[in-house]
Design a protein around this nucleic acid. Sequence first.
DNA 1: CTATAATATGCGCTTATGCGCATAAGCGAC
DNA 2: GTCGCTTATGCGCATAAGCGCATATTATAG
Lengths: 97, 97
Amino acid sequence: MNTTTILSALAEPVRLEALRLIWDGKEHCVCELMKALGASQSRMSRHMATIKAAGLVTDRRDAQWVRYRRAADLPREVVALVDAALALPVEQERQVA
Amino acid sequence: MNTTTILSALAEPVRLEALRLIWDGKEHCVCELMKALGASQSRMSRHMATIKAAGLVTDRRDAQWVRYRRAADLPREVVALVDAALALPVEQERQVA
DNA sequence: CTATAATATGCGCTTATGCGCATAAGCGAC
DNA sequence: GTCGCTTATGCGCATAAGCGCATATTATAG
């Protein structure tokens, strides 16, 4: 459990919005998240890897899908941090034009 | 008020520890912080600028010192976030040898 | 004025981050 | 085996972040 790693994982709009979706405790595949957030496949996959490396989610192979879900038994301090981050205003992605 | 900017400001050990010191509401000069955290002068100065840009602290000239203090009237969601971040374990800086 | 102290900043450098593209890998259906 | 779908990853590139060094800036004291 690494404080900076967790905070860095939160400090990116796509990752934070992915966490918002995942925070419901249900399973979400990468394809769902990438569509919901408008991210490319590789981009989404790597962001999920970052969130997973921070320990905030777990993943599970299910046929051709990988199901991500909120990690169980997270320390309450970590849950409080993520909750607090999700309480901040949503950010829009920078548009190109 | 920018969510990612705030989270990025927290996602660095020296900045987070500086915030811990500053979070007491009292004024702290850069020289105090750099000594307390073992950071060089320019490093500390820039980190404080980052925290200030995120809106978490304000500064004030006082003779040759610049006094930083926790920003007043922060939205309660932001205060909750910083509190939650400060509740996580302190990180030690990577030592060279 | 000079000297000293505290802080900010321009510069160059190194490293980290984020991205798309292409491809590999995993899995089910056939 | 092949095909199709989903996900991960190697690669190259562009940009951002972080740092030290030196110097500029701001202020006090004498």
